[in-house]
Design a protein around this nucleic acid. Sequence first.
DNA 1: CCTGAAAAAATGTAGGT
DNA 2: ACCTACATTTTTTCAGG
Lengths: 151, 151
Amino acid sequence: MDIVDRKIITLLAEDARRSLADIGNVVELSASAVNERIRRLTASGAIRRITVDADPAAFELPVIAFVWIALAPDADEGAFRSYAASQSAIAECHHVTGPWSYLAKVHVASLAEIESFLATMKQYGFLARTETIIALSSVVPGPFMPKGSVD
Amino acid sequence: MDIVDRKIITLLAEDARRSLADIGNVVELSASAVNERIRRLTASGAIRRITVDADPAAFELPVIAFVWIALAPDADEGAFRSYAASQSAIAECHHVTGPWSYLAKVHVASLAEIESFLATMKQYGFLARTETIIALSSVVPGPFMPKGSVD
DNA sequence: CCTGAAAAAATGTAGGT
DNA sequence: ACCTACATTTTTTCAGG
């Protein structure tokens, strides 16, 4: 990962459909050299995947919420993790410092859906306590990638 | 936005380099029809951009932090918003319900860098109080897109 | 809004520094 | 590692239903 690799990834982050020739013009390399670098960056895992940033509103998921989670003392941590990974509503979930165990970022259709989302997790026996914060607007929106629902 | 459009975007979210013919096979349309749908979805804003999900570690930004921000009573809200948008460390920033005004997700190289990040915002006169939560690990990682630094 | 085929463009590969 | 040239694949355009 040299400075050119970083530049290439940053250009792709702006627009991953730029041609290799275009990118080559910016970083002063041939299209093949850029291609080979992208291949290496992908193989090494520096590039995880080429993806799409979509509008949550188009998926009728206009509500972003951050949910603090304190896991039930007897909760199966492994089960919680695979549950979180499988839920299409959960865009991110981190184990965090501070008084709560996890922080999840969720995309939902409505406030009512947050309630049923929490109720389901409660039924699974995962939750001790939660606290939900709603995003009213986004100064810096952050990307949205619809997950295929794993039902 | 019908069910086919959603399926196309979801497929692109998994791997935006799939060929139109491939996608067409899945949704049972010709490559041209898929192309035309993607064109429309992009024009309407349902697709914001094709981008890359990168590994923060490759950019030497292994630390994810969530910073709760209470804006100083006399802070220029507009200035804060454009500052937040310009900072490459800030991956997301939302105006939120609850006791804090904003929640920012930041990517940094080290804990020390969080300190200087907060110090800079304090110098600009934006901050009244902040609270920082560190992600210890990520159950569901969430994508990382390097922003070009606007210095 | 779709198909199918032709044209244009981008990507992947080979051989030579 | 990179370049140029070429083969292959993909994307884009367009006539027609």
